[in-house]
């Protein structure tokens, strides 16, 4: 049935459906409309093109990283890079490119950040999802999400000018805590990613059907038991996903670390109370300096960058496996 038939039927005061049902003379028409086919195809192409942009960007990033990294490994052996324990790219005649101190620097800050954000984020999520009265929740959740919009450089300032002097130096002692230190940067990164953990975990906990909670309550469970033994396990895959996103953000975080953690590569096992250099901070440091294109130091940035990329990729793959194994599907 085409549009004109509908119009005619409507004009005649008859419902179009009964009109077609009654019209025996008109052949029953199911053939497709040409103009609709064309527009559908164009829309499909447009949507596909948008998706393609992000795909091409990813391919572009990977290829840039890859080519420069290969160049870098012509000058420095892969073993020296990945197994070397000293990072001295500035040493004039004989620079050392052992990336391990940068990796442990990044990991130190990430671990501190996770120690802060995972427990606190999860507990806030449980509070928001299970305990908070709806009025409290309707205020807290937007505030939490607002926190995620604060520029990271501000968190860096906060770490440098508040956490270090007022918290760490006051508690541990001024002589034992450096002005730049990994702990304050780690705490700030943890606070930065906390809203993400809390908000995403809360979303997945609230998605757990009410009937499951009622099943728990009906057997004489307390709120705590329902929260931790029904809702939490059922929401685990979403909660895990939020952890992974948080770890990726922590590993890739730059500004806070540049501002608060310092720029001197630390030992293989860094002291969190002293300054260290993370992978991202090194990249910023060199790019903002006067490094010449094509030099080994320049290429080392890409080697460090691709290592960072591999780390987050690995993290994502491992965590997806974990999620698949531990998830409790409720529908």
């Amino acid at each position: 049935m085409n549009q004109s038939a509908i119009d005619q039927a409507a004009a005649a005061g008859v419902s179009p459906l009964t009109a077609t049902g009654a019209s025996v003379s008109r052949p029953f028409d199911l053939s497709s409309s040409r103009s609709r086919n064309v527009s559908e195809r164009i829309i499909g192409l447009l949507l596909g093109a948008c998706g393609l942009v992000s795909l091409l960007t990813t391919v572009g990033i990977i290829s840039v990283l890859f080519f420069q990294t290969v160049e870098f490994f012509r000058s420095v052996s892969v073993f020296d890079f990945y197994l070397g324990t000293e990072w001295l790219p500035n040493r004039g005649s004989d620079p050392l490119y052992g990336v391990l101190p940068l990796i442990t620097g990044t990991l130190t800050i990430s671990v501190i950040a996770m120690l802060i954000s995972i427990p606190m984020g999860l507990l806030s999520a449980i509070y928001l999802s299970e305990y908070a009265p709806s009025r409290v929740r309707s205020v807290l959740k937007p505030v939490l999400e607002l926190l995620a919009g604060i520029p990271t450089v501000v968190y860096g300032f906060f770490a440098l000018t508040f956490i270090t002097p007022n918290l760490l130096q006051a508690l541990v002692g001024k002589d034992r805590v450096g002005a730049f230190n990994a702990l304050s940067a780690g705490i700030a990164v943890g606070i930065m990613i906390l809203p993400m953990v809390a908000s995403l975990s809360e979303d997945s906990m609230r998605a757990v059907p009410r009937s499951l909670r009622e099943g728990g309550y009906a057997m004489g469970a307390t709120k705590l038991e329902v929260s931790t033994r029904v809702v939490l396990p059922a929401a685990l895959s979403g909660i895990f996903a939020s952890f992974i996103l948080a770890i990726s953000r922590a590993v890739g975080e730059t500004m806070i670390i540049v501002v608060a953690a310092g720029s001197r590569p630390a030992d293989l096992i860094p002291n969190p109370l002293q300054q260290l250099q993370a992978m991202t901070a090194y990249i910023v440091q060199v790019f903002s300096g006067d490094v010449s294109r094509g030099s080994v130091r320049y290429q080392s940035l890409f080697a460090v960058g691709s290592t960072l990329f591999l780390m987050t990729l690995l993290l994502n793959i491992v965590s997806q496996r974990l999620v698949a194994r531990f998830r409790e599907e409720y529908q």
């Binding site: 059907p209 499951l212 009622e214 099943g215 728990g216 009906a218 057997m219 004489g220 469970a221």
Partner: peptide
């Protein structure tokens, strides 16, 4: 209420076993 529910159990309209 927790003590009440331990003695007065309930079965719901839609089966709601835990995903365990």
């Amino acid at each position: 209420p927790v003590e009440v529910r331990r003695r007065v159990g309930m079965v719901f309209q839609k089966p709601n076993p835990f995903p365990k």
